[in-house]
């Protein structure tokens, strides 16, 4: 799953560095992701994983790293 997340970040995250140089724990905001970009990342995640992020997941911290995103996706899938 982290591979799919990384591909989405590569395409939509508008990071100022190559995603392959970042660890799963690295701070995506410090890597240049803006809140506008994080909206597109979320939409792409929803389409890719066929999920919907409930409003309580729409916090800055949920999109702050590859591992934070993957935990959120797991949690949303588990709740279904």
């Amino acid at each position: 799953m982290t591979e799919a997340i990384r591909n989405i970040l590569k395409e939509h995250g508008r990071l100022s560095v190559d995603i392959s140089t970042l660890t799963d724990a690295a701070d995506l905001y410090q890597a240049g992701m803006t809140s506008h970009a994080s909206v597109n990342v979320m939409l792409a995640l929803e389409a890719n994983f066929e999920i919907e992020f409930p409003d309580k997941f729409l916090r800055r911290s949920v999109f702050s790293s590859v591992s934070a995103i993957s935990e959120a996706v797991d949690e949303i899938r588990a709740a279904r």
Partner: peptide, 9 residues
């Protein structure tokens, strides 16, 4: 416009 794309309720 972009917030409305992500808000569900």
């Amino acid at each position: 416009a972009s917030l409305l794309l992500v808000l569900k309720d």
